[in-house]
């Protein structure tokens, strides 16, 4: 069996037009109890106007990865290594001051719970205007006019009135739109979104997703979208990176990953997602639960839950196997598993 496997640190092909190029990103959390690797060997690239979804369950390291890109992790308790280059600039080596100029201006971020991200004592208008003034230095009147424009952009009804509203006076969907407006205040080139629609109701979630997709296309923003929801990823992603136990186990175009996943975890996740399964049969679930990052198994982190695991998997960590035009799979048996016969025999696609 000759696997065309390259080592774990193989660079993902980067082109000159990339907006963001992340190579071997690694995040360690340090505490008195010791050091925990939370994110390892994460590499991906993002072109302008492209949407990457980082898909994973709780504890997979997806949110930490996102925060590491903006160095938003608590200093002293975390250590970020590797290379994050945004428009050719090295974010990890950047001095604090330059970083602050980047944050909120060229890179901005939206969160799951707008109530905690928006300041409760300022009106929506004030918060947008403040960001605009800080980054562009325009007058207050101009900044307020800009705020109004932004509320119209995110389609908040009767924006003049909402400009003077406090966050708690808005419904969940409007609040999330307001946060998107704040994040767009300086027309960022890169938008980082951490589960921005998870807390929303279904009928509101779809509105916000459609809005985000439209804004992202109109403004040509590169977007990284962290989610645990396959449906959200399918709705918005161009590329998908599936994370498990701190590593990207599968990376590829949305179609490749969602319609023809190679990694056993990605497949299992797809198969265990409830969506129109036969009602009189069990759902094919992945057994067990994700590993404790402080005590990872020696080989592949997924091996203890994997139906295809061999001794090799339990002994040595797999390297990256290329797949598609740019993607990769982190599995010893990626090529064997790619054969259709095996797929049909083990995982019934839904």
């Amino acid at each position: 069996m000759t696997l065309d496997t390259v080592t774990g640190s193989a660079p993902v092909q980067a082109t000159r037009t990339d907006l963001l190029d992340v190579q071997n990103l690694r995040v360690d959390f340090t505490s008195r109890a010791g050091r925990t690797q939370v994110v390892r060997d994460v590499s991906f690239t993002l072109a302008p106007g492209e949407v990457l979804c980082i898909l994973g369950e709780s504890g997979s390291g997806k949110s930490v990865t996102l925060r590491a890109l903006m160095r938003l992790l608590p200093q002293g308790r975390s250590e970020i290594t590797g290379q994050v280059s945004f428009q050719g600039e090295d974010v990890l080596a950047m001095p604090r001051r330059a970083l602050n100029g980047l944050r909120g201006a060229r890179i901005s971020m939206i969160f799951q719970e707008p109530m905690t991200a928006l300041d409760p004592v300022f009106t929506i208008g004030d918060q947008i205007a403040e960001t605009v003034i800080r980054h562009t230095g325009v007058s207050r009147d101009k900044a307020m006019a800009r705020a109004l424009e932004l509320l119209e952009l995110v389609r908040i009804p009767s924006p003049e009135r909402r400009l003077r509203a406090y966050p708690h006076e808005l419904s969940g969907g409007l609040r999330q739109r307001a946060m998107i407006a704040v994040s767009l205040s300086c027309y960022p080139q890169l938008l980082l979104a951490d589960e921005p629609t998870t807390a929303l109701d279904a009928t509101v979630q779809i509105q916000v997703l459609i809005l985000l997709k439209q804004l992202q296309q109109d403004l040509g923003m590169g977007t990284i979208f962290v989610t645990h929801d396959l449906g959200v990823a399918a709705q918005i992603a161009d590329k998908i990176a599936v994370m498990y136990a701190g590593r990207i186990v599968e990376y590829g175009s949305a179609e490749e990953v969602l319609l023809n996943p190679s990694h056993p975890y990605a497949r299992g996740m797809l198969a265990s997602t409830v969506s129109g399964q036969a009602r009189d049969r069990d759902i094919s679930a992945i057994p067990g639960s994700p590993p404790d990052l402080r005590a990872l198994p020696p080989g592949c982190a997924f091996a203890p839950r994997c139906a295809f695991a061999t001794d090799l998997c339990r002994r040595t960590e797999p390297g990256l196997t290329p797949r598609g035009t740019f993607g990769h799979v982190l599995c010893h048996h990626a090529q064997d598993l790619a054969s259709p016969a095996l797929v049909g025999a083990t995982v019934t696609a839904t």
Partner: peptide, 25 residues
Amino acid sequence: QALLASQLHADPRNRVTDPPITGDP
């Protein structure tokens, strides 16, 4: 109907392009 039409499916070829209903509850 709106609830059902707002359901997301894990198929990127089959995206919802128009929100079934507008506004919040």
